[in-house]
Design a protein around this nucleic acid. Structure first.
Lengths: 337, 337
DNA sequence: TTGTACGCGTTATCAC
DNA sequence: GTGATAACGCGTACAA
């Protein structure tokens, strides 16, 4: 209909011609703190409007070497908490002017190529929220490619080249362990997920150490290869199946809610037992399902929104100081333990 | 350590110097079907390796006007099926060489800005999998901005300027309705989500019409503003609460699993009733939870992976023919109905 | 406040 | 098979 339909790409030059200014003045009109008179800006904006012009962010990124784009490398899509993290992160980022490149790290071997992918897009930062990025991958990634910022979200890492934004697992686990003891549970079973980075500070190691310290006994622990409720159901099944009723754990302490939900399903539906009367369950994350009438899961809530906001702070910070940060969450007591 | 650490950006020129060829030959070495001798290619690749060079996709996109990047506009993050769709889409895209820009459409007013955002990144296509994109938004979007391709995924649209990749809702709903009748249910309650595009072809309208046609009765229907299990729990609660037991529906037919799960939670835990004995429930999507021991949800599975693959076909197709496509799914019979 | 070289790192196209 | 020219659309730095 309008002239804009005839031309393939409207550039700042076209707007400049129509507005009767130079191309760089058009540029200034679209820049926030540029020195430009209100009159000219309005003139430019009107011309831009009629032509349907919007600045080309590819070209801007190329010229300025800042893209306002971050790559988000994700796997472990069976964990419902991933959806929460994706929402909070993209919300915080977008609200503050950042775009997100979502990279599905297809499998273990894809971790390297996925990092390379982000590198080729020249993103301003790469954020890892997957489980496939172990110390080895991180090391090779950092030696081989150039990353402006490499951020590990919701997971601690000892790697000095990365910025870790996570909840304080030791403090959180201590709170959980104290709660479990205070409620009088005697035979906990720890259900852990895959071990990747920094195993010695993991929730499982911490819980086991605390329990030993306070009771003298080493609790049993089992683990699964992914944070998948179905895997949790199966491992709990095979763990409890051969046990005599009196030998069964009185509580299953889970590394996160994804596992806790699978554990509850198993306890209730495979064994016909009651939660928490027969076996209690405790989780971590406070996923939306945890609050449902069906699970009423006692868990530990991570302050994901605050962590996401801090992540954007990190992006906007150009200093070189250590930006690692640990957050404190809080226990959410419901009925499952 | 190496020379690459000293220089900020390694470009094809640097590699060209080291390999003793021209910049354009370096380029060819990285291109799949370029005419270049194997010897030169190897020489170039070795030089690239030592310098740590990888092509800059920003510059490539700017020069070629093809980015191999799509924008994925998403809202409705409370629906667990979103995580499945995100995984399948990003997997299919990435496997075939496409990157994904994930845009969280923050709220109703943000739909326009989100579309604009994608436009500014000059993506090759924009994919909508949200619920906030009604006919009005689509119309203004298309008149105001230039989109190479505008794809509606997992939702039908009557808009002629968009490509719709979705399951055949009419066929699916017919199958569901027939199943419900065959199993002898008499008083269905339809639980619908928000109505956006193409309401006259929606699952709800179709179900209601079919039921009327076959029984002469108009089934009750209620709807919620988002595909959120918690909202479903509440609306079912307020709907059943004032009913006498004999007036209650004998089955709740849900527009999708997110609602069905909330409905089951309500029926079992708020009313202490049994599913399916007291009230049956049927869903749509077959989310991972649907198979859990706790829900055993009878539902209708969309062929998301096939739809995602077809979406990439659409991206790779440069023709102008109508690429709309409807898929058939299949019923998954479990215990909830 | 406004205008002007020059560069960002590629790709398309044509010459050799 | 290889080298060279001209875009792609904008940002930076400086000059006017």
């Amino acid at each position: 209909m309008s002239a804009s339909d005839l031309q393939a790409n409207i550039t700042a030059d076209d707007v400049a011609v129509l507005a009767g200014v130079s191309r760089w003045t058009v540029n200034r009109a679209f820049k926030n703190n540029a020195s430009i008179s209100p009159a000219t800006r309005e003139k430019v904006m009107k011309a831009a409007q009629t032509l349907g012009y919007v600045p080309d962010l590819r070209a801007a990124a190329l010229a300025s070497d800042r893209s306002n784009l971050v790559a988000l490398l994700v796997d472990d899509f069976n964990n419902p908490h991933k959806l929460v993290m994706l929402e909070r992160l993209t919300r915080a980022l977008r609200t503050r002017g950042w775009d997100t490149l979502l990279v599905n790290t297809l499998d273990r071997e894809d971790a390297g190529p996925a990092l390379m992918n982000a590198s080729q897009r020249r993103v301003d930062a790469t954020i890892l929220i997957g489980i496939q990025f172990d110390d080895e991958v991180l090391a090779t990634a950092h030696s081989a490619r150039r990353f402006k910022k490499l951020i590990i979200f919701a997971r601690t890492s000892q790697n000095p080249d990365t910025i870790s934004i996570a909840v304080d697992d030791v403090a959180a686990t201590r709170e959980i362990a104290q709660y479990v003891m205070r409620r009088g549970y005697k035979r906990p079973l720890y259900l852990a997920g895959p071990r990747t980075v920094s195993a010695h500070l993991s929730r499982k190691e911490t819980f086991v150490a605390l329990w030993q310290e306070h009771t003298g006994f080493t609790p049993d622990a089992v683990s699964v290869a992914a944070y998948d409720p179905n895997l949790a159901t199966e491992i709990i099944d095979t763990t409890l199946r051969p046990m005599a009723a009196e030998d069964r754990p009185d509580i299953v302490v889970c590394e996160n809610d994804a596992l806790a939900i699978g554990a509850i399903d198993c306890i209730k539906h495979r064994f016909g037992l009651k939660v928490p009367q027969d076996i209690a369950v405790i989780g971590f994350d406070d996923v939306p399902q945890a609050a449902s009438a069906n699970y009423r899961l006692t868990t530990y809530r991570q302050p994901i929104s605050a962590m996401a906001e801090y992540l954007v702070d990190v992006l906007e910070n150009s200093g070189t100081e250590d930006m690692d940060k640990m957050f404190l969450g809080k226990m959410v007591i419901r009925d499952s333990a």
